[in-house]
Structure formats: C-alpha cells, structure tokens
C-alpha cells in the first residue's frame, strides 16, 4: 500500500470495516509513514467524537406535551365499533322481552287504528319484534357514532 491507497481506506480502517488482510498491509505502511500516522490520528479524533455523541434530553414536560396533543380519534371505548357489540346485545334483549314488546306494539297500533293491517307471512308479534330490533340497531349505531363525533369534537 502506498500513501494514496492508505488515505483511501483510512475511514474504513478507523470504523473497522476494512478486511483483515488489508488491515495488516495498512498497519505495515503506518509504521514507517509519519504523514499517514497524522491522517490516522485526525480521522480517529473525528470518528470517535461522532461515535460518542451524547443522548440529549428534551425539556421537562415534553412527554406530557406529546401525550396531550395526541389526536383521540382512536379512543377504543367510544369508537363506533362498539355499535357492533351493542346491536346484537340489544337484539337479544328484545328477543327475551318479545312478548311484552309485541303487546305494547299491538296496543299502539290499535290506538292508531291500524290493527286491521295484517302481514301475510309474519304474525303481528314477529313483525313488531323485527321492527323494534331494526329501530334499536339503528339507535345503537347512532349513539356510537354520536359519542365518537363528540369525542373528536372535544379533542380538536
């Protein structure tokens, strides 16, 4: 290796990226060349300073500031996805109390003079339950979406 070659592989030598056989040749040249020794000392100073840069800490309160400024769109508790859980739950409740629900519905229908209307395949009771279930599912979705929108509104 001559001086030019040594200078070309100087950085890889310092960062230990030079192949072992090249390293030996490099060392051999170094022993007898003052100028390359100087180059090596300088590059070593540069690389070791760069390698040992300290971790800098932001001002106190940084983490709190970050946490406060997170957008809350994804707050799990109030996401509209809850409607997917709530809807079958409510439908189940409707099923359990279908007798009472049908009576209430029948009474309401007869009061409004619609008791004459008959659905061919569904009994009035079944139709009532189905209608109520649809209403409740819709309500659950609406409540979920409303809560979600309110949450987003509060944060932004």
């Amino acid at each position: 290796m001559n001086c030019d070659e040594v200078k070309r592989s100087l950085q890889d030598y310092v960062t230990r990226e030079l192949a072992p056989e090249d390293r030996r040749v490099f060392d051999a040249h170094l022993v007898e060349c003052g100028e390359c020794q100087r180059e090596l000392a300088l590059m070593t100073a540069v690389v070791s300073t760069l390698d040992h840069q300290p971790v800098l800490e932001p001002r106190p309160g940084f983490s709190e500031k970050v946490m406060r400024s997170l957008p809350r769109q994804r707050v799990f508790l109030l996401s509209p996805w809850w409607s997917l859980v709530l809807a079958p739950l409510l439908a189940g409740l409707v099923w359990l109390f279908r007798g009472q629900a049908a009576r209430v519905l029948e009474a309401a229908l007869s009061r409004s003079g619609l008791s004459q209307v008959t659905v061919p395949t569904l009994s009035l009771q079944q139709a009532g339950i189905a209608g109520l279930a649809v209403v409740l599912v819709g309500l659950a979705v609406a409540v979920g979406a409303g809560a979600y929108a309110w949450q987003v509104y509060l944060r932004d």
Partner: peptide, 21 residues
C-alpha cells in the same frame, strides 16, 4: 396500535431522548 395511550406513553418515555437528539 389499538389505541392504548398508557402503552404509547411508555414508548414515548423510552424513545424521547433518542428522537430528540
């Protein structure tokens, strides 16, 4: 990723020095 802020807070605490530096 599922929206757990407490978990994210730990990550912020862990990486704030690295990211700020």
């Amino acid at each position: 990723a599922r929206g757990d802020e407490q978990a994210f807070g730990v990550l912020v605490e862990r990486y704030k020095g690295m990211l700020y530096s």
